[in-house]
Nucleic acid binder design. Sequence first.
DNA 1: GGCATCCTCCATAAATCCATGGAATATTGT
DNA 2: ACAATATTCCATGGATTTATGGAGGATGCC
Lengths: 225, 225
Amino acid sequence: MAGSTTAGAKARLYDAFASSGKALASGKRLELLDLLAQGERTVDALAKAAGLNLTTASAHLQTLKQAGFVATRREGVRIHYRLAGDDVAQLLALLRKVAERHQTAVPVARDAYLGEDGAAEVGREELRVRVAAGEVMVLDVRPADEYRAGHIPGALSIPVDELADRINELPEEMEIVVYCRGEYCVLAYDAVRLLTDRGRRAIRLDDGMLEWRLAELPVDSGDPA
Amino acid sequence: MAGSTTAGAKARLYDAFASSGKALASGKRLELLDLLAQGERTVDALAKAAGLNLTTASAHLQTLKQAGFVATRREGVRIHYRLAGDDVAQLLALLRKVAERHQTAVPVARDAYLGEDGAAEVGREELRVRVAAGEVMVLDVRPADEYRAGHIPGALSIPVDELADRINELPEEMEIVVYCRGEYCVLAYDAVRLLTDRGRRAIRLDDGMLEWRLAELPVDSGDPA
DNA sequence: GGCATCCTCCATAAATCCATGGAATATTGT
DNA sequence: ACAATATTCCATGGATTTATGGAGGATGCC
């Protein structure tokens, strides 16, 4: 019934899907996608942020481009990469969710990286309510350019690197909700530890900007007014 | 700031996610997942359905199991594999959607496999309305065991292999809506071609059982009453 | 126990992927 | 045109992955 042409065509279709799967099959590529989910970047910036040799980063980006996960924009001598669409971020988030739920190695690696943390978390809806009530303030601890590319409305930006020096910019008595890139981003964990060590009340948003965008909640960009 | 331990832990976390990505990085594994989305099967049945050597199929299934995408159940001498959860099917569906949207090779391979098809399709909601109105009947052309494992309520089962012989079981005048495994399954395409060649009015459901389940619509199982 | 069936584990060769250094290309500024 | 910068392309060696045949384990039947 199924002729050899059909069998070949079937394999080609599944292989085409698989080549998108392959793009997700390297930790470094996932890290690049994660960075790109915060906003566009140049090859050089991506390589540095991901701790990769420039040529290696370029090669991974080509793989991602072939899979159609990223798009590029040239600006003078440099090339800016960005995610090709929201659905790519969605795919990344779902891959992680499924991996976390079904693969036992993930929670272990997660705790080892982020810190075991029994610490308090707050969800997006509760955050909205408590911000409206004036009970808490929101702190974005990502690098400044990521904040500029898009942040939760009303959030203050202090990159985690600068937090120790700039802690006095934070009101003494208010509780602080910290967020960063996403559910698996270490910056907010580090920031909460730093703040509580200095006697501030600080908790984490239970995920980050990636999930905020996927939930299609409002996003501000640029520097605060 | 980020010590070497942290860097290693970060890489381990991303690599853990990537090992789930790797499970999606082979056409044959995607084909196996696609089959499993229809219901559980033995290794032997999977190998035959996917056109694989038994040991090769077993190896791929081990890979999927490591990623936590499939689970097993022993019944006497044979082992039944099944998807580990709905979220796995969801991931598979999203991967395909993203691939189709962003990778130019996919639509080409799709048309080559399924046939270019300008033919009419009907969506799930329209199907529901037209069935309720008694305008159409629903035909499931998957193999009988997949039908038994779960089908659209009220659907008649005639596997596409038997369709030519059993065409007289279909009412002459009613329009027939054919479905099979999912959006990229060839069986319904073949069936519609066969039926229209013989003068019946037949169209396809625009996707199949995989998407029906993901939409959490009602599913019947077993043989019809 | 002995034997058949179904599946997994092991060893191996071919193919593919990854990281990296050096060459080539494209754009901008002088 | 020339130099400088950012990125891609190419070649290479080392590590992984894939398909496959054969050995080994588990279960059920006699």
